[in-house]
């Protein structure tokens, strides 16, 4: 295992929906980072990065959220969060507030968990983990087509194939990958799209979970739990048996 010589000081960013609905992913992220030698702090007054408001175009309302985020996360070497769409917002869209040095420091030090493990810690072995299941990978659209640099290659662009999540999972024993027909088609979550465009959102979700079912996936793993929350809701309503898990939980060796 490659480790940076000095223990990195990491601020753990637990996105609001993970805090409220999937705390186990926050715990897995925390434990994993600590196992890998990071000194992890949890800025206690954090709430949300402002993405749901900014994605509606509502810069006025996003500003207070963004200011609070910066207040919580300023000054850390690394800000790590297990969600590509939230990190994408911080890194590429957080401009409802004045771009002070402090804001810029926060925006340039925010990392999605997979890229932090892959690019910064450069870890490839998770000896405590094993996952003897048929697994399909779900790459969120944000992680493929918006986040810079992306976590994996996309089907639209001609170029070498790569996948940071798969590289991290490559040494976890037991995983048998299954491939979807439409591997990187959007699942229809889309944040508030899932509420305000409910019909299309659910139809896209149903098509996605059908594809996963046909592929024979027992588990769907992703670096983005928000997509999985939607997919899981669709699969449960349809009575499908496949399960949904965040990559942090597999890499941390959580029993599920």
């Amino acid at each position: 295992m490659t480790m940076t010589p000095i223990a990195p000081r990491v601020a753990l960013f637990v996105p609001c929906f993970i805090d409220a609905s999937f705390p186990e992913i926050g715990v897995a992220t925390l434990q994993l980072l600590e196992r890998l030698g990071c000194i992890v702090e949890y800025p206690f007054n954090q709430t949300c990065c402002g993405q749901p408001l900014a994605n509606e175009g509502d810069q006025k309302n996003a500003a207070a959220c963004e200011a609070l985020f910066v207040q919580n996360f300023a000054g850390y070497d690394y800000i790590v969060g297990p969600s590509a769409s939230c990190i994408h917002h911080v890194r590429q869209h957080m401009d409802a507030i004045e771009q002070t040095d402090e804001v810029t420091q926060v925006r340039t030090h925010a990392y999605e968990l997979v890229e932090f493990l892959h690019d910064i810690l450069q870890v490839r072995d998770f000896p405590w983990a094993s996952f003897p299941h048929k697994v399909a990978l779900h790459n969120s659209c944000t992680s493929l087509r918006s986040l810079q640099p992306p976590l994996a290659s996309m089907s639209e662009i001609r170029g070498p194939a790569f996948s940071k999540p798969k590289e991290l999972l490559a040494n976890v024993p037991g995983i048998e990958w299954v491939e979807l027909e439409r591997a990187d088609e959007c699942c229809g979550f889309g944040g508030l799209f899932s509420i305000f465009e409910e019909g299309v959102s659910a139809k896209m979700g149903y098509d996605k979970v059908d594809d996963q079912r046909r592929a024979g996936a027992e588990y769907i793993v992703s670096a983005d739990m928000s997509c999985l929350m939607h997919q899981k809701g669709c699969a449960q309503r349809l009575g499908y048996g496949q399960k949904y898990i965040h990559i942090a939980q597999i890499l941390n060796g959580d029993t599920v």
């Binding site: 993970i18 999937f22 926050g26 949890y42 899932s194 409910e198 659910a202 809701g233 449960q236 309503r237």
Partner: peptide, 21 residues
């Protein structure tokens, strides 16, 4: 409840991450 028309809502956890911490 637009979310719940065609989807299940996530089960409420015993505690939020914040409470866990």
């Amino acid at each position: 409840n637009a979310w719940g028309l065609q989807r299940e809502i996530p089960d409420a956890p015993k505690a939020t991450f914040h409470q866990w911490w």
